[in-house]
Amino acid sequence: MGFVRNGSEKLECTALGQWTGRPPRCEAVACPGLAAPGRGRLNCTHWHGDFTYNSTCAFSCEMGFVRNGLERVECMALGQWTGHPPRCEVMRCPKLRDLEPILMNCSHPLESFSYGSVCRFRCTQGYFLNGTSRVQCQPDGHWSDKMPACQEEAASYFKQVLLYMGGGAVTLVALLLTGMFIALLIKRLSNKEEEKTLLNPISNLGAPGVFTNAAFDSNF
């Protein structure tokens, strides 16, 4: 098992003392040849010849790539491998998202957000970067650093505070002016009422236009 005859199945000795043919050879069954996967390596052990019965081949991948498939295959007696050769796929890092006020610019030499990808960060006007300005996807599928954040600059913050306080001050002034206007209006109305009272011809001292003096009247 695992070997095939290469030559005649039967030989006969002729009258001249010679065999009718040469003795056959038993050769190991051959499996299809294998090659290293892209971005990978192939390491084989051959007991009876290259890629033949009992040959074993192991696969590995370059740094930054991961094997997708079997690590090892073996050539069987029927001339077939125990499985399909694997593929080496690039290691991926978690996808990054840029949300304002942070701005991101990435370069991907292989695939999006994979080994070797580099992302740079900056902030919109009025904000400053808190953290690293550059991260790179490592061979183990992790970024070289945490994604930074954008924080509002102090000047911008105080500007907003002043705007807020300014709005409050305007409201306060408006309320004060309104109160003063109402007070003046009430005072003016009160003055008009007093003027009406002074100009009223009806007096509490007697009939209209007639003034009496009790002491003077008693003498007559």
Results as ranks from 00 to 15, higher is better:
Met1Asp: 11
Met1Ser: 10
Met1Glu: 12
Leu16Ser: 14
Arg25Asp: 13
Glu27Tyr: 09
Ala28Trp: 04
Cys31Trp: 06
Cys31Ile: 05
Arg39Tyr: 14
Gly40Cys: 04
Leu42His: 00
Tyr53Met: 01
Val66Gln: 13
Arg72Gln: 15
Arg72Cys: 12
Ala77Gly: 01
Gln80Val: 09
His84Arg: 11
Cys88Asp: 00
Glu89Phe: 12
Val90Asp: 03
Leu96Asn: 03
Arg97Leu: 15
Leu99Ser: 10
Asn105Gly: 13
Ser112Asp: 14
Ser112Thr: 12
Ser114Arg: 07
Ser114Phe: 08
Ser117Glu: 10
Gln125Ser: 14
Gln125Gly: 13
Cys137Asp: 02
His142Cys: 08
Trp143Tyr: 00
Trp143Gln: 03
Lys146Thr: 12
Met147Ser: 09
Ala149Glu: 14
Cys150Val: 06
Ala154Ile: 12
Tyr157Glu: 13
Val161Asp: 02
Leu163Ile: 09
Met165Trp: 06
Val170Glu: 04
Val173Asn: 01
Leu175Gly: 00
Leu176Ile: 09
Leu177Met: 07
Leu184Glu: 12
Leu185Val: 01
Ile186Val: 12
Ile186Phe: 10
Arg188Leu: 03
Ser190Leu: 11
Lys192Ile: 11
Lys196Ile: 08
Thr197Arg: 07
Leu205Lys: 02
Pro208Met: 15
Phe211Tyr: 08
Phe211His: 05
Ala215Cys: 08
Ala215Ile: 09
Asp217Ala: 05
